[in-house]
Design a protein around this nucleic acid. Structure first.
Lengths: 119, 119
DNA sequence: TCCATTCTTTGACCGTCATCGAATCATAGA
DNA sequence: TCTATGATTCGATGACGGTCAAAGAATGGA
């Protein structure tokens, strides 16, 4: 029987907590991978895909931080953990934030970008 | 003679540094006051207006963090410090980020907001 | 030149955080 | 029931960050 792990209600989102959660590069990497996918993803598969180079306890810690900030929803089903971004809730409380944080390149010319106009 | 205090070039903006800078409530308060104003503001006047309840060294520290992240530009003229948001640079590197962070209410029903539709 | 004012830097303190190894827990399968 | 597997918790450690008091520039005025 799947059970949803503890998470804050959308009304109790805290911008400080959310920005602190997004301030970590590893957590942003997880968020981007989740953000690109519409469907929920198996935690283990996601981790294997992005390869953060961190230990299992640390990964688990990061998942928890994201979930307790309200950024993700995690459903435990047996030994499996399925996670997804709380898009609607985030959009309701902080419109455009996820797109601005996850959509922009980390550094100048990071990923494939438009790169036109403006000097 | 006015001199601009050291700041990063727009090409060396670091999302981790910027989000960390914005993760502090006091710094966000400063940023909002700056963001609402089009013209540069005298640091002392700004601080007096928002009243963070912090010591002078701490305020100075926060100003420095914002500046070194690339969020603000500070010009020293005599004993006066004039600061403003680097809107264009931020918009170029992280479009929509400042609006998303500074425009949304900190908590549910924080400031005067639309509050319509959506349950 | 000297003093008073204002901001910054320094140094220290303390709490928080990222990280890992080891131990613990929970579940699926034999 | 027993065991193997995957995730979490615990405990420790090192680093970072916010804060302030005290000391140190820098400036404007007497």
């Amino acid at each position: 029987m799947p059970r949803t792990l503890p998470e804050p209600s959308v009304d109790s989102f805290d911008l400080t907590v959310i920005l602190s959660a997004l301030a970590d590069p590893g957590r942003r990497t997880l968020m981007r991978a989740l953000y690109d996918s519409v469907d929920p993803i198996d935690c283990a598969i996601l981790v294997a895909r992005v390869d953060l180079g961190l230990s299992n306890p640390t990964i688990s810690h990061h998942y928890r931080v994201l979930r307790e900030a309200g950024l993700t929803r995690t459903v435990a089903d047996g030994r499996k953990r399925v996670v997804r971004v709380r898009r609607d809730d985030m959009e309701y409380r902080f419109p455009g934030l996820l797109q601005a944080v996850l959509g922009a390149p980390e550094r100048e010319g990071g990923q494939a970008e438009a790169r036109e106009g403006r000097m």
